[in-house]
């Protein structure tokens, strides 16, 4: 089947109304092989009456070997384990980073942590 470029974003507001994140999968078809870019944006606020401040965004390009996993995530959406990882370990890693003011973070450890999300049962890299 032909490669079809596509971007899908899911935005979620945490239960405490103080943290919010969006997660995007961007699929590009520059040549025969698709390319996948994951973007994670984290925002928070001190009180529910304050406006949200963007803390950090992460941008990760998925390697060739992980393309089937990215494609499966596009087809199925997130599973419980991936969502729990996004809301828990990954958000905690990102919340500890210095604010980037909207620009993608260059923190390698955080980007590596974000790239794990496409695994069926993601865990933080040691």
């Amino acid at each position: 089947m032909a490669c079809i470029p596509f971007s899908i974003t899911l935005a979620v507001l945490a239960t405490d109304n103080k943290r919010q994140f969006s997660f995007s999968i961007n699929k590009g078809c520059e040549a025969e092989k698709p390319i996948y870019v994951l973007v994670f944006v984290f925002r928070d606020r001190e009180a529910v009456t304050d406006p949200f401040q963007e803390r950090v965004s992460l941008r990760v390009t998925v390697g060739d070997t992980d393309s089937p996993k990215a494609e499966r995530m596009i087809a199925r959406g997130m599973n419980n384990a991936q969502l729990a990882y996004l809301k828990g370990p990954l958000t905690n890693v990102v919340a500890g980073l210095p604010p980037t003011g909207g620009a993608p973070s260059s923190d390698e450890a955080a980007r590596e942590a974000a790239s794990q999300i496409i695994n069926n049962r993601p865990v933080l890299p040691s």
């Binding site: 470029p5 596509f6 971007s7 899908i8 974003t9 899911l10 935005a11 979620v12 507001l13 919010q20 969006s22 995007s24 961007n26 973007v39 944006v41 925002r43 949200f52 963007e54 965004s57």
Partner: peptide, 19 residues
Amino acid sequence: NQELSHALLSSGAGVLIVL
């Protein structure tokens, strides 16, 4: 997609597609 994601976040939660 990134710029519209910010607008989507302003709405709380939702889904965005760019084709």
